[in-house]
Amino acid sequence: MSAVAPIADGRVHVSLPELIALRSRVARAPAPSVTSRVQRSGQRPSRLHGRGMDYAESRVYQAGDDVRRMDWRLTARSGVAHTKLFQEEREGRLLILLDTNVSMRFGTRTRFKSVQAARAAAMAAWYAVRGADRVGVLAFGGQRQLLRPQGGSRGALAVAGALAAWDALPPGEDESLSAALQRAGRLMHGASRVLLVSDGFAVDAAARGRMLGLVAKAEVAVLTVADPLELSEPPAGRYPFAHRGVHYDVVLQGERQRSDFARSLGEGHRRLDELCDSLGLRHRTLDTSADPLDAVVALLGTARGR
């Protein structure tokens, strides 16, 4: 007997039509502000002087310089031959690093974290291609798959399709963030930016060193997805849970009991926040009932040199 396909309701499972429809929401957001498309090395902008479109500066003429690039005004003013240098235009590439560990399949308000993560990733894809970037996605955790960066609407549609397809598959074994970052470092495919979307429970002791290695190659931003129950202490009451088909109730009454429960549930986003703060990475926290657009724009829409 074949397995029954999950219902793509947009709450427990990702809805592909919704991911595609998010394009119209992104189209109304402020356009990405890009200062240049020069390849980045880590968090520091670099400048490449080549045959691009953006004027960088002028310098004294050197043997072999293209005479068509002569800065005649500065040459006349200084009496010394000068040539113009330009910043080379390069197409930017965004790689979305998506957490698909089993902890992401959890939610008490509106939708699962896994569904919210897919919505945020889809918005990031639409926003990236709007800024003429290529976009790809690398899943880690239960799914360990790569969609190589592609440009234009086709690239964002491919990301949306991959997100929905991967969500419909049964989850595999969990994977640590350090292992995922190591794979990402090998599979960058020229990406100049990386957006990590995770709930933080995959953060391990080795993750900081691996993240440092990734930061040396690309500009890294982090979007932490959290359920509201993970962000604040819950009120007293009975809370029904289900895990791998097993249903059970958690009864929370006393202050100490609720505090310990909140501390345990919030461990993931705290570890990820601490990692980002220690490395000076831009990061935002997104709960499962919020619109991801503001967080995506905040992380990807600021001016950057690449």
Rank of each mutant, 00 (worst) to 15 (best):
M1H: 07
V4I: 12
I7M: 04
I7W: 02
G10P: 10
R11T: 08
H13Q: 02
L19D: 03
V26R: 05
V26D: 07
A27F: 14
A29D: 07
P30Q: 02
A31V: 00
A31G: 10
P32T: 05
P32S: 03
T35R: 15
S36D: 15
S36I: 02
V38P: 02
Q39C: 05
Q39M: 09
R40Y: 01
P45E: 01
G52L: 13
M53F: 13
M53D: 13
D54R: 15
D54Y: 04
E57H: 15
E57Q: 14
S58Y: 03
Y61E: 11
A63L: 13
L74R: 14
L74T: 02
A76E: 09
A76D: 09
R77E: 04
T83A: 15
E88H: 12
E88D: 04
E89I: 00
E89H: 07
G92M: 04
L98W: 06
D99A: 09
N101Q: 09
S103C: 03
M104A: 11
M104W: 12
R109W: 06
F112K: 08
K113F: 10
V115A: 08
V115H: 11
A117W: 01
A120Q: 13
A120T: 14
A121I: 10
A125F: 12
Y127A: 11
A128M: 08
V129W: 05
R130G: 15
G131C: 03
D133N: 04
V135E: 02
V137M: 11
G142L: 07
R144L: 08
P149Q: 02
G152A: 15
L157I: 14
A158F: 13
G161A: 13
A164G: 07
P171H: 12
P171C: 01
L177Q: 08
L177S: 07
L181T: 02
Q182D: 10
H189Y: 14
G190K: 10
A191D: 11
S192Y: 01
S192H: 04
R193S: 05
R193W: 05
L195I: 05
L196G: 02
V203G: 00
V203S: 01
A205C: 01
R208P: 00
M211F: 11
L212P: 03
V215G: 02
K217Y: 08
L223I: 11
T224A: 14
D227N: 06
E233R: 09
A236C: 00
G237H: 05
P240M: 00
F241G: 01
H243N: 05
R244P: 03
R244M: 04
V246W: 04
H247V: 00
Q253C: 03
Q253N: 10
G254C: 02
E255D: 15
Q257H: 06
R258E: 06
R258P: 00
S259G: 03
E267M: 08
R271M: 05
L275V: 06
L279P: 09
L279M: 01
L281A: 12
T285S: 03
L286A: 10
V297W: 11
A298W: 01
L299R: 03
L300V: 12
G305L: 06
